Amino acid sequence: MSNIGIVLGRFHRKEVGEMLDEARAVAARRGLGIVAEVWVPGSMEKPLAIKRLLMRDDVAGAVALGIIERGETEHGNVMGHAVISSLIDLQLQFMKPVGVGILGPGINPSQIPPRIRPYAAAAVEACADLIEQG
């Protein structure tokens, strides 16, 4: 059995909690163990938490879950691009997959509920697929 870690943004704790439930179910179905669930303040903190997980010998991959909601400024878009770029760089640095289940940047509140479970599931599935190929 391969192990993964999950990093979660607590700014939208209720919705991200639902994402975690889905991620756990998909991980179990795919035969992945979850060795760590790390809650961080928001998306900006995800790359460091993911890096710490990827440095562990018992972690074959990681999943980032969260929401970057549309705001009144471009902050969310800039942050979203920086976070995704950092997560891609970490995948390549450690040669371990990072499944990204971050809604947004720029998602409207009404768009969040129908995407919670599909995005979480897709992030774990992507991580599992790449672990299997590895």
Results as ranks from 00 to 15, higher is better:
Gly106Ala: 08
Met95Lys: 15
Pro41Glu: 03
Thr73Phe: 14
Met19Ile: 10
Asn77Cys: 02
Ile68Asn: 03
Leu20Gly: 00
Gly42Gln: 07
Val63Asp: 03
Val7Leu: 04
His75Arg: 03
Val26Asp: 06
His81Ile: 01
Glu74Trp: 03
Pro113Ser: 06
Ala49Asp: 06
Ile4Thr: 06
Gly76Phe: 11
Ile84Leu: 11
Gln91Cys: 12
Gln91Glu: 15
Leu53Ser: 02
His81Gly: 15
Ala49Pro: 04
Glu45His: 12
Val7Arg: 04
Gly42Tyr: 13
Ala28Cys: 03
Ser43Phe: 06
Glu72Leu: 11
Arg13Ser: 12
Ser86Tyr: 07
Pro41His: 14
Gly104His: 13
Leu8Asn: 09
Ala23Leu: 00
Pro97Cys: 02
Gln111His: 13
Ile68Ala: 05
Ala36Pro: 09
Leu103Ile: 09
Ile88Gly: 04
Ile112Phe: 12
Val38Glu: 15
Ile102Pro: 05
Gly99Val: 01
Val7His: 10
Arg56Leu: 04
Ile84Arg: 11
Gly31Tyr: 11
Ala60Lys: 09
Glu69Pro: 01
Asp21Gln: 10
Lys96Asp: 09
Glu15Trp: 13
Ile107Gly: 02
Asp89Met: 11
Ser86Asp: 12
Ile102His: 10
Tyr119Phe: 13
Ile116Gly: 06
Ile4Gln: 03
Glu72Lys: 01
Val40Arg: 08
Ile88Tyr: 13
Met19Pro: 12
Gly76Trp: 08
Met79Phe: 08
Glu72Ser: 13
Ala36His: 14
Gly80Ala: 13
Pro41Lys: 12
Arg56Ile: 05
Pro118His: 12
Leu90Asn: 08
Glu72Cys: 02
Ile102Glu: 10
Val7Gly: 08
Ile34Met: 02
